[in-house]
Each structure stands twice: as structure tokens, then as C-alpha cells.
Amino acid sequence: MSFHFIKDQDFPAFLSGLIKARTVVGPVAKTSRQQEKFVFARLTDPAALRLDYDVTILPPKKEFFPPKQNLLLFDGPRVTPGIEPEEKVLFGVHPYDMKALDMTDALFREKNEDRNYTAHREAATVVVSSVQKVSPRAFWASIGTEVKPKGHDAWLTKVAGGCVYEAVTAKGEALLQHGKFAAASEEQKKAARRADEEAARQCPEKLQGTSASNAKKVRAAFSREELWTKFAQDCFSCGSCNTVCPTCYCFDVQDWWHVDQNTGGRTRTWDSCLTEDFAKISLGAGAQENFREERAERFRHRFMRKAAYLNEKLGGPACVGCGRCSAACTADIADPTAVINSIPEA
């Protein structure tokens, strides 16, 4: 672990060097009707990188677990796996998203390791960037605080006059060669810590209670149907909350043919447990069984998953407080702070 400093005026050259040497993915702006939003995209122009972004529409997991991914391709009876990992630098991941990445790492790795994810993940160098601008629905400072961001290769923090770059792994260290770095002073390191603390203070939303107390009360509320029915009254089952979630990792698998009718593929696509058909099976003769038929049941399932079910496995809740679901829900009923705070203690 080593701390470095790069001056503001040297930063563009560092990025240019990096982009020349490696595939670099980072936050860039996207606009509609003059409204600015952010997405992770491949960088060609260093000036496009927006480390002052508040939150991206989709979390960075899409780099390793894309919305659509071919698991297998076939040509008649010949079956080919679709794993083709690309070495890349994922630059500017916010700490809350890093926590989430570490969770999806663990979930794809456990039991039966899924190389379709882990091979891509291992080929990447991930550089965290401290939050410079807090998004309007963020609550990352008050959820799962016992779980710290890990799994990153470097951590970049904007301070006066430049950035502090903490190289955490050899992969993170290797990026230093592309820029003009000096050793960071104690003062600069302190300034970086202060910047993180200041950003945390600015989170506009707050989850009350501890991870354990919230897990307990959410679980205890399971059978309170009236509560979930009320929460889910305006739910569209549209899956937006799942689809933008950095810790959601469910997927559907479908096969398809090319027009030649001989070649094709088996493709996984992000799936959402909020959508009506998620837990439906056919029983034959037109009969079906849906294990979560009511939208209140599906709404509840998401909160159980986020606040309780996975806590043991992940060491904390499967929610990192990015606020994407709150912002993506047009009915504004998905906000974990609003829902969990309103559930009475068990």
C-alpha cells in the first residue's frame, strides 16, 4: 500500500497515457433536455471523464455482468463457451459501488464459481474515486457501515491542487507509470480523509438503526401483509429498482437462433424479482404456479433480500445506499430509507 499525489495540471496527461495503454472505462455525462446524468462508458477522450459525477444510471457491475451476456454459442451440435475477458481499467468507482462490486464478487464466486463473471472481474483494474458530489437520494453514509469498501486496486481522492492516489495492489501500483506522481505528504493524506468525511456528512437521506436491528425488524414484519400491501400499492412491478441496483444479480437465460436456423446462443439477461413472472413455473396443461404471485409479495421479497436474507453471507445488508432505486422508481415507493425507517422495531 502506498500513497501518491498527482497535481491537477498533470492529471489529463496521466489519463491520456492510461487511455493510450489500456481500455479505460469511467463515468461520463449523458444528457436529455439539458438534464445531465452519468453512465460508465469506454473513454476515448480524457476530458470526457467526470469524476464530479453524483451517481451513474447503472452501477459498474455491468462491466463484468453485462445486461445481456452470451453464456454459450452453438453451431449445430458444436457448443462454445462465450467467455472472452478483456483487460480494462474501471476508473472512478464510488466507494459505495465498490462495496457492491465486492458483494457481487463474493456471490458469483461462492459455491459454483461463475467464470462468466469472475474471469472479467479478474482481468480488470478497479480505481475507486471518492465522492465529490453527493446524489440527491444517497444514504450510503448510514447503511451497512460495518462493511468497508474492498477489492479495489487503487483509491483516488480529490484534494486541493490535485489528487491523492492510494495504490492498494500491484495492479493499482502499475498504473502509476502512466503519470507524474510524487509521494503524498501526511497533510495531503489527511486532506483526503477529510474529503471523504465531508462527503459522508452530505448524504441527504439517512437510514436509522443498525444493520442487525434493521434485519431483525424487517424479517419480523414478514407476515404483516397489510404493511406490504400498503407499501406496494403503487408498485408497477416494473423492475426498475432491481435493474439499477448494484447488488442485484438475478438473471434469466434464454436460447435463440440466428436466421440460418443452425447457429445461435444461450444468453443471460438481467432479471428482476419484482416482475410478475419471476417465480412462475408451468405445471403442464396450461396450469402454472407462481411462488410470488402478488406484487406485495414481490415487493417484500426485495426488502428481505436487501435488508435481511443475505446479511450472514455478506457481513451486512445487500444494500449500499446508492439511492438508485429511490430515484428510478417513478412512483417513489422504492426508497429503502423510507420503507425500512417506517417499519416499527420488532
Binding site: D252, D271, C273, Y309
Partner: peptide, 24 residues
């Protein structure tokens, strides 16, 4: 138990019951 065990390897989420994956 029977559920929609789509991937069979404890990933896709369709067969979850609480923190259990029926398939694994």
C-alpha cells in the same frame, strides 16, 4: 422442494427461498 431452478448453480435467483437457493 420444487422451484424454478433455472441455472442450477445458485446464481440466477429464481429458486430462492429466503437466503436459500433450492438448487444448491
Amino acid at each position: 422442494l420444487e422451484r424454478r431452478m433455472k441455472c442450477g448453480v445458485g446464481k440466477c435467483g429464481h429458486c430462492q427461498i429466503n437466503d436459500k437457493y433450492v438448487c444448491t
